[in-house]
Design a protein around this nucleic acid. Structure first.
Lengths: 165, 165
DNA sequence: CAGACTGTTCAGATAATTCTGAATAGACTT
DNA sequence: AAGTCTATTCAGAATTATCTGAACAGTCTG
């Protein structure tokens, strides 16, 4: 059974190409919602989809974006521990693939954010005069909220299994 | 014991004012990290800090921002169920305070995001040809990750107690 | 060594977000 | 009804984030 679009037959490879491009586009949007630049999200999506290491130049070509953009997007993803750079003997290019613990790393990054938020609130509380009871109680609730989220994320981080490459 | 800054004595009220302004500034930054515009975060912070309902005009004045900005920021916060608008008899202005279930609402918003991400991945999987086994397995892991996060957030949403106003 | 190729950096261009002032409409007061 | 005060909307300004091209430094190849 072949998929048909605009009356044209598609072979399996073309079909996968189209699904992949669509996936990449969508993940770019999702990434933006999570505080990542679109392009980093698209690179991540590409690596998830392909599985095997992808060359620097291929990323630039396939995502229709300059090498400079790839370079900075890659740096961000590496800093967050989401991808890793691998060397292929006999090829000068850098190759990239998902980090073994990419999903755990994603979770830990979010966790760092919620812990930071909690710390900011606690710091504010420490500066309050003794008699500001109402404010203290409200900030305490707010901090408790971030603490609950942090606990949940911490739990997720330990549970998340390594993605099968 | 009075706090001292630059050799000047501060009374308790001034001290609290300073702590509050600092808190508001910080929460604006935190909010940006969570995909909220800075000003919405600052309004939210102000409402947490003050506890009692705050007037539309007061928000504009205290945050040194136009009424138009307050209006749009407020709308966003209302849409997310984080604050509620209250009427004070004998005053034409709108007043705002934290929603009773503000923290639960925050959690649910995040949850909606992770569920949406999972749905996008599942949708992509449904379009794959039968024989794309490797891709399917990787997308499945990715979806499972978002599912784990979603479960955790769902759990948080039910556990989060109402903030004490 | 000269030439080709690679990834990084950075100033400036481009695009997207966020804020403002003016216009508008509704509601209250006198 | 006329005059205030209110919140909202929206076009454009201001700000911020993102992308690019060029310059660069390193590495390999012939």
């Amino acid at each position: 059974m072949q998929a048909v679009i605009d009356g044209e037959q598609m072979n399996t490879t073309e079909q996968i190409d189209q699904v992949r491009d669509d996936f990449i586009t969508r993940m770019g949007v999702i990434a933006m919602g999570e505080g990542l630049p679109r392009m980093s999200g698209q690179i991540f999506a590409m690596l998830v989809f392909e599985g095997e290491p992808i060359a620097f130049g291929a990323l630039s070509r396939r995502l229709s974006v300059s090498r400079a953009t790839i370079s900075t997007s890659i740096r961000l993803l590496e800093e967050r521990g989401l991808i890793r750079r691998v060397n292929k003997t006999g090829d000068r290019q850098d190759y990239f693939q998902l980090a073994d613990d990419a999903y755990a790393a994603m979770t830990k990054y979010a966790l760092a954010g919620t812990r930071h938020a909690k710390a900011e609130i606690n710091d504010t509380m420490s500066k309050l005069p003794e008699d500001a009871e109402g404010v203290r109680a409200r900030l305490d609730s707010f901090a408790a909220f971030y603490d609950t989220i942090s606990e949940a994320l911490d739990d997720v981080a330990t549970r998340v299994s390594k993605p099968k490459i």
